[in-house]
């Protein structure tokens, strides 16, 4: 554990807390994409199957469970919890996440899994677990897209929603620093190039948002995206 990874994780947790608070306190889900959070839930469920098979640390296990539970509760609130669910604007949340996110990621994960030859010689169960891990890495990199597209529609971005996306983006940017750090200071550190590639892609998707976020913070004014 290094300082970049810890800050990255804390940034991730913080973004989730910001969103949970926003939903609970404002009792309002407008401007929030349910599809993004369903994608994140799928990401966590497919990546953390190792909760049952590999123990890394108490920290790791607790965080994994916390991510799954908190994201599940976000999805539950937006979908079912009255009165929040009545404020969810389904008509605006239109990114076709099955066709353009889940499907392509599943295909890509299958291809990389078999082309890389990873998993050959391992049991079917381990192979499926590896495949799901790779799928989750791909899917996480683009899971924010429905949310970013929804924001483009509204343009005027609420403070808390803006902060949520900012911390969510910072999390993966900090992970990149963590990978660089580990490459230098951990002998025998195993590289996962799919994770690196997706981590960079994921961070780049936030770049444009970061730019307008910073500008609005500097002006101290309201945050709106350009047309």
């Amino acid at each position: 554990m290094n300082v970049f990874r810890l800050c990255g994780d804390m940034s991730h947790v913080f973004s989730i807390v910001v969103l949970l608070l926003r939903l609970r306190v404002a009792k309002n889900a407008s401007g929030i994409s349910l599809r993004t959070h369903e994608l994140f839930l799928l990401v966590f469920l497919t990546r953390y199957t190792d909760l049952f098979t590999t123990y890394y640390s108490l920290y790791n296990s607790c965080m994994k469970i916390a991510y799954i539970l908190s994201t599940a509760s976000i999805v539950y609130m937006i979908r079912l919890s009255d009165p929040i669910c009545t404020t969810y604007d389904k008509a605006q949340d239109t990114f076709r996440h099955w066709a353009f996110a889940v499907g392509p990621c599943a295909v890509l994960a299958t291809l990389t899994h078999f082309i890389s030859g990873e998993g050959s010689g391992y049991s079917l169960f381990v192979n499926i677990q590896e495949l799901l891990w790779t799928f989750s890495i791909y899917l996480e990199s683009i899971a924010i897209l429905p949310q970013l597209i929804l924001l483009q529609r509204y343009r005027e971005v609420e403070n808390l929603t803006g902060n949520y996306i900012f911390f969510m983006g910072s999390y993966r940017a900090l992970y990149i620093l963590n990978w660089i750090y580990r490459t230098y200071y951990e002998p025998g550190y195993r590289h996962h190039y799919v994770a690196y590639f997706c981590g960079v892609l994921q961070t780049l998707l936030y770049a444009d948002f970061f730019y307008y976020y910073m500008q609005s913070k500097r002006r101290g004014g309201r945050f709106s995206l350009p047309t």
């Binding site: 998993g119 992970y175 025998g188 195993r190």
Partner: peptide
């Protein structure tokens, strides 16, 4: 296979 590298991350 599962151990090491970015697989001990979140």
């Amino acid at each position: 296979l599962k151990d090491g590298g970015s697989k001990d991350e979140l």
